[in-house]
Design a protein around this nucleic acid. Structure first.
Ligand SMILES: NC(=O)c1ccc[n+]([C@@H]2O[C@H](COP(=O)([O-])OP(=O)(O)OC[C@H]3O[C@@H](n4cnc5c(N)ncnc54)[C@H](O)[C@@H]3O)[C@@H](O)[C@H]2O)c1
Ligand SMILES: NC(=O)c1ccc[n+]([C@@H]2O[C@H](COP(=O)([O-])OP(=O)(O)OC[C@H]3O[C@@H](n4cnc5c(N)ncnc54)[C@H](O)[C@@H]3O)[C@@H](O)[C@H]2O)c1
Lengths: 222, 222
DNA sequence: AATCAATAAAGAAATTTTTCTTTAAAAGAA
DNA sequence: TTCTTTTAAAGAAAAATTTCTTTATTGATT
């Protein structure tokens, strides 16, 4: 007896895959700008994006945008709703730690500001980098993270240090009170349940490609 | 009548999420190097990676590596097997198109060579970039792609151009005979079923973080 | 006006993936 | 030795996600 109650706390009503698809829809919808069409149908989107059309209508239904039978969805309204959902007009501030190849690329990526992400400072351990700027973003020494954080609290910490440092950095910034961590290192980091963690593993993408390339010619293990 | 046969062609015996987890395991296992332990148990890995331990044993069973009851898995053997599975000793050549912020970062990423990916040339439309090198990688004009490809065929094409160009580039390199496309642009690209496509959407990661940050305070749509 | 065709929407079914449960093995302790 | 505990492994169950099916609406066509 004392069986656990079968229904557990759902993290959300929205499937995570749905959330991850929204930026893709948005990108496609924006590519339709300039075209004369006012409406776009789910089957049309499905064709280019290679996503099942009923999946698309389902995803759209989550953000309460209704389509018109025989016509489709109003492009502008769809764009507006998705942007609203993704919080494009609700900017979040971020610090980025590790100003190497990837860190620099992320700071320079000019799309983030339109997506509601503001990288307001960078941190590194390399004294050659400390004091410089990437575009307009100042780079500070990692030892000054806490001080800077207290002066200007941010919600998101982006980690682009080598994998070996990622967990230590994470622990440090969690202690400072960061709310969310976007980790690009190959090592997934662990954090208390109260901290939001998103691991973006580029290497996982490579693993997938290489596996597909070799599929049909299975490797033998011994 | 004439109902479709219920069982459809399975793409593989390995779940895609499993494949994507292997690089994470590998990263964790390598962080154990230098430690005196020879074995590591699934519950131990589970603790740091926050992945269910039975999931881990299942994933490992796919690559035919057996653990020892009460002891765990031999770290070295595990590393070897995963690397073998991921084809680290089976390098694939790649061209990268779009030598901007991200393209440059990818070329400079020194881990890829150890993971069995060789980016042997870059392509751009910007004449300022054509003729330069990123580290030792030569940058050619995109119009010379076919020529270069015929001279030195590669299996993978990495797309890091702006989203608007991604599909056109994809069409071009597919026509040349590329086998797999790794697309980093925000627009998922479509390709014939014979071409392997992996869309790595960094923006999807941001969408997830921002949504989680706002969860509990649901946005109202009107 | 009647019919046809395309589509959204809702729900059912199938599939995939994760989590839970049970079993057995084996190391270490008593 | 015997008992306890930890763990892998296999299978069952549950949960999540995708795909299929049906229905109804509506614009276009005859
Ligand atoms: N560059 C890529 O394309 C790419 C691809 C896949 C994964 N990654 C991952 O992204 C991360 C960064 O890769 P990269 O190529 O930009 O590496 P990089 O070596 O170019 O940059 C790492 C930066 O972190 C800094 N750093 C090191 N320790 C630090 C610390 N304790 N505090 C603050 N800063 C510190 C270094 O000084 C350096 O500037 C790595 O974990 C890598 O695995 C990168
Ligand atoms: N930089 C990032 O951190 C980041 C983050 C998320 C997504 N992305 C995506 O990655 C892609 C690249 O981003 P970026 O910041 O490196 O952009 P970027 O503007 O720095 O680089 C794009 C490069 O592509 C080249 N290019 C344009 N059209 C071309 C064509 N037809 N043929 C060949 N080359 C062409 C440009 O000359 C430029 O060098 C974009 O699609 C972007 O959405 C980048």
């Amino acid at each position: 007896m004392n069986k656990t109650i079968p229904s557990r706390k759902k993290h959300s009503v929205l499937p995570a895959p749905t959330i991850r698809r929204f930026p893709l829809y948005l990108s496609f919808l924006k590519s339709l700008k300039g075209k004369e069409n006012v409406y776009v149908s789910a089957p049309d989107i499905a064709k280019t994006l290679r996503i099942d059309s009923t999946q698309i209508t389902k995803d759209f239904s989550f953000i309460k945008v209704a389509g018109k039978t025989k016509v489709g969805y109003e492009i502008n309204k769809l764009v507006q709703n998705i942007e609203k959902f993704l919080g494009y007009r609700d900017p979040k501030k971020a610090f980025i730690i590790g100003i190497g190849n990837l860190g620099t690329a992320l700071i320079k990526y000019n799309q983030f500001s339109q997506e509601g992400l503001e990288i307001i400072a960078g941190f590194d351990i390399d004294t050659e980098k400390v004091g410089t700027r990437v575009i307009s973003t100042k780079i500070y020494h990692i030892k000054n993270f806490k001080k800077r954080f207290n002066e200007t609290p941010v919600e998101i910490g982006i980690i682009t240090t080598p994998s070996e440092q990622a967990q230590i950095i994470a622990d440090t910034i969690i202690e400072c009170g960061i709310k969310a961590i976007w980790n690009f290192s190959a090592s997934p980091i662990s954090a208390p349940g109260t901290v939001i963690v998103e691991n973006t593993s580029i290497d996982s993408g490579l693993a997938m490609i290489k596996w597909k390339l070799n599929a049909g010619r299975p490797l033998i293990y011994k």
